[in-house]
Amino acid sequence: MRLLLLEDEGDLATLVANGLHQAGFSVDRAATLAEAEELTRHFRYDAMVLDRGLPDGDGLSLVRGLRRRQDTTPILVLTARDDLDDRIDGLNRGADDYLVKPFALSEVVARLRALLRRPHSAVDCVLSLGDLAFDPDTRQAEVDGKPISLSVLEGNALEILLRRAGKVVRRTQMEQSLYDSGTVIGSNSLEVLIHRLRRKLDAAGSACAIVTVRGLGYLLQPMPPL
């Protein structure tokens, strides 16, 4: 899951971004409306978290612009504006949820996951294929009911592959979903990540395999029985 975080307070933005990273999200940060608008024109996000009081305007203007373009990306507003009228205004202008500062990071993550479970996001509670299962909420992977330990990036890669099980996930698509826009990606970073994930699935005895489709990307599929 790739998120856009629009927050101009540097320390708070870092705190929220780190918490979202730990929860398994890939996060792009913007400090102004102009930066956020530019990012939304180049990348597709699974959800957005934004402040209202920004140096160049109200964060809700971004929401309004997205909704006019028929963009239904789930949006959570984090703001210090706690008046009832402000909350109603935010929801009426296209935000999906509204959380007032100060807040607990655990609640931000929980609210985002609730938004991503709504029908327009089509995010299942538990993803599975054959003997392999992954819970996006707990970030726990299992093979035949037994937990396996994955890093945050390995879990994110597995989630992407499970959501597209049986279909090729293009390399560029995986890189955009896994890495923030500011991350320097090595030429073989994705190959190394997939190699580590393969080894862990093999060690756990999974009957699912990650297949490399040369020149395209990767697909996850059950291996035929011997």
Rank of each mutant, 00 (worst) to 15 (best):
L54E: 00
V27W: 02
P119V: 10
N156L: 12
D97C: 05
R2G: 01
R93P: 01
I160R: 12
A207L: 14
R199H: 12
A31I: 08
V27Q: 04
A114E: 12
D144A: 15
I185D: 05
R196C: 05
C208Y: 06
T172N: 13
A157P: 06
L220K: 00
A104Q: 15
D85M: 10
A133Y: 06
R44Y: 13
G65I: 05
V152I: 12
Q140Y: 13
L76S: 04
E142N: 13
H195R: 12
A95S: 06
D86A: 15
D46R: 08
F103C: 07
N18L: 14
P119Q: 02
Q176Y: 14
R199Y: 07
V213I: 14
R198S: 10
H120S: 08
R171M: 10
D86E: 13
E142P: 07
L33G: 02
M48G: 06
T40E: 05
P55Y: 02
L84C: 11
V108K: 00
R68Q: 14
L84W: 11
L66I: 10
L219E: 10
G205Q: 02
F25N: 05
E38P: 00
D8T: 10
V213L: 10
L15M: 13
E7P: 11
L226P: 11
H21L: 03
V168S: 00
L54F: 00
Y45N: 04
A133P: 01
H120L: 14
P222F: 05
D51M: 04
A23Y: 03
A203E: 08
A209F: 13
S61I: 12
E9S: 03
V211F: 08
Q221D: 06
T172R: 14
L33K: 04
R196W: 03
A13M: 09
N188K: 12
G90C: 10
D131Q: 05
D124I: 15
E107S: 11
R198C: 11
V184Q: 14
V211Y: 04
L129R: 02
V184H: 13
L54Y: 00
P225K: 09
V211K: 05
D51N: 06
T183W: 14
L150W: 00
